[in-house]
Amino acid sequence: MSDIHGYVPGPAEGALVRKEGENWTLILVRKLRHSPQRVWAALTEPDRLKEWAPFDADGNLGSTGAVVRLTTVGAPKPVVTETVVTRADPPRLLEYSWGGNDLKWELEAVADGTRLTLWAVIDRRFISMGAAGWHICVDVLDRLLGGAPVGRIVAGDALEFEGWQRLNREYAAQFGVEAPSWSPLSGDES
C-alpha cells in the first residue's frame, strides 16, 4: 500500500531518544495548525481518539485520577490496559500509561497553532517502530483536525503501509539501531 487516501508521510524528523536501560523514551515534537484546546479534545475524548490513536478509550482521559480502559487497535489478541490518568492540566499537560509504558503529552500555544511534544517510553528494540507509528498517528491527528481526515492508520494497516516502513528505516538510522521487522499476519517480530 503506497499511500492511504493521498496521505504520504514526510521524512523522519522532529524526534530524538533518551536512552535509559531497556526502555528508551521517544521524544517527538510536532507543530500542529490547531489551538491547544482542539488538540486537547482530540487527545482526551474517546470519540476523537478512535479516529487517529492506536487505542480506543472507554472514557475521557482529560482529568487527573480518571480510570480508563485502553484497548489496542488491531492487536492479534485483545490487549486491554486499565490506566489511571496521573496528570491532566487542560490544555497543557496529559500523563498516563498505556500497555505498561508511560506517555506524556505537552501542548504549547505558538503562533498559528500548537507545539505538541510527546514523550513515549518504548522498549529499545522497537523504538524505531514506535517513532514511525507515532509519527503517522500525529500526522493523521493533524489532518483530522484540519478537516481532511484520512482515517486511523495503525497496527497491520500501518505495517503494510510503505510510508511506515520507510519511517521505521529512517528512524532506526537516526537512532543508531537496527530496524526491526514485524509480520502483520503472524504478529511476530523477526
Rank of each mutant, 00 (worst) to 15 (best):
L167H: 09
G156W: 03
V154R: 00
V138Q: 04
R166N: 14
G133S: 11
I136A: 01
G147L: 04
P149S: 07
D142M: 06
S128H: 03
A148W: 01
G147N: 10
G147Q: 07
G146Y: 04
D139M: 06
D142S: 15
E162K: 11
H135I: 08
E162S: 13
P149T: 03
I153L: 09
G133K: 01
I153V: 14
V140E: 07
L145V: 15
A155T: 08
V140N: 07
L144C: 11
F161C: 10
P149E: 02
V140R: 04
Q165K: 14
E162G: 07
D157G: 09
L159C: 09
L167C: 14
W134C: 02
G146L: 06
L159I: 13
L144K: 13
G146A: 09
D157R: 12
E162D: 15
L145H: 13
R166A: 15
L159W: 05
P149M: 04
L141P: 01
F161T: 00
E160I: 08
G151Y: 10
N168C: 14
V154M: 00
G156C: 10
L141N: 02
A131G: 10
M129L: 09
A131I: 06
E162H: 12
G151M: 05
W164Y: 15
D139F: 03
L141Q: 01
N168G: 10
G151R: 12
